[in-house]
Write a protein that binds this DNA or RNA. Structure first.
Length: 318
DNA sequence: CACCATGTTCCTTG
DNA sequence: CCAAGGAACATGGT
């Protein structure tokens, strides 16, 4: 494909791509893997003292209510909805369980530490579980740990839900003229895609991120539906094969930290086809990957592989 | 020092 | 009323 190579070459000559490090911002797969790790560790554990270092992450729940509900409570289960973690809690002296909602924001981490281990700089909430403590750390404090469940009511379909069919997907896409990438990020059609997997899914579906959602054909919607599930399930599959590791200790003594991979296997960046690859050759056609800004967010795509509707307007004329 | 990145909510504008 | 766009949030990296 000489045409593609020429483009790649000129792209490199005009502006060498600056390599941005991909931060492990948690999206659905990362949350899913975290939930699977946490579940056995938290199950049936009883909470002792609770420390809140950053009240903002509980909002609108107050520190007072938060502590009152959690002290003496026990974990019954952990699950996920979109990028949210759902901790099923049984409060002291109560028969019914309650849901504590967690969200990692962009920099949130949840893990266990030995009771006497020093806390990280940005520990937001810590629950004492006896010999261990459950830590919610969040550098930017955009995350949440709250009893306010309203956010999950606004979420769109769960990508692996049986109810989420290509037909349903097409139907909801019809309601918007916003670019498809923007709709995927909004969580209201499909829950769990973030900036990375939204770009990746569109690449695998060979769709321009700029196509208005309602202009996707049934075939295109079905292709995207498959791509979304494929991209997410591959990431989950990969995540669960990574051994637990606590950053800084590198041991597997029951502590863990998710988001960092041991160097042995291909890195986080290496498995992504377009995300943060502006200027690099497309894995299919070797055309330089482009970056565009949509609603203030970066979108990465191959201008050659990812086009608009055939016979209609080209959204990415080369 | 100024600016960028990120996910979500809130506010404004059309 | 809704759709769409932009600011705000907090911090660290360039």
């Amino acid at each position: 494909m000489p045409h593609g190579n020429l483009q790649t070459l000129s792209a490199f000559l005009s502006k060498p791509p600056k390599q941005t490090t991909v931060l492990p911002v948690p999206e659905l797969p990362e949350v899913e893997v975290l939930v699977r790790h946490l579940r056995p560790w938290l199950k049936n554990k009883t909470i002792g003292d609770v420390s809140v270092y950053r009240a903002r992450v509980l909002s609108p729940t107050t520190v007072r209510t938060f502590k009152k509900k959690l002290r003496g409570a026990s974990f019954r289960g952990v699950s996920r909805r979109g990028k949210y973690l759902l901790f099923e809690i049984r409060c002291l002296g109560e028969r019914r369980t309650q849901v504590l909602l967690g969200h990692l924001g962009m920099t949130g981490r949840m893990y266990l530490l030995p009771a006497n281990h020093p806390l990280p700089k940005h520990a937001a909430v810590v629950m004492n579980l006896g010999r261990n403590k459950f830590v919610f750390e969040d550098t930017r404090y955009f995350g949440r740990l709250t009893f306010d469940l309203r956010p999950i009511r606004r979420l769109g379909a769960e990508p692996f839900d049986e109810e989420f069919t290509p037909e349903k997907f097409l139907e909801v896409l019809k309601h918007s003229r916003q670019p498809i990438k923007v709709r995927l990020l909004a969580q209201s059609i499909v829950a769990g895609l973030g900036n990375i997997y939204a770009s990746e899914a569109l690449f695998h579906a060979k769709l321009s991120p700029r196509i208005p959602a309602r202009r996707l054909t049934a075939a295109q919607a079905t292709g995207l539906w498959h791509a979304i599930r494929q991209v997410l399930s591959e990431a989950i599959q990969r995540g669960i094969t990574i051994p637990l590791d606590y950053a800084g200790l590198g041991s597997k003594d029951g502590l863990f930290y998710f988001g960092r991979e041991p160097g042995v296997i291909g890195s986080y960046e290496e498995r992504l086809c377009v995300y943060a690859r502006a200027g690099q050759p497309c894995v299919n056609c070797h055309t330089a990957i482009k970056r565009l800004i949509q609603v203030g967010r970066s979108t990465f795509y191959c201008p050659s592989c990812q086009r608009g509707n055939r016979g209609k307007k080209q959204f990415d004329a080369v």
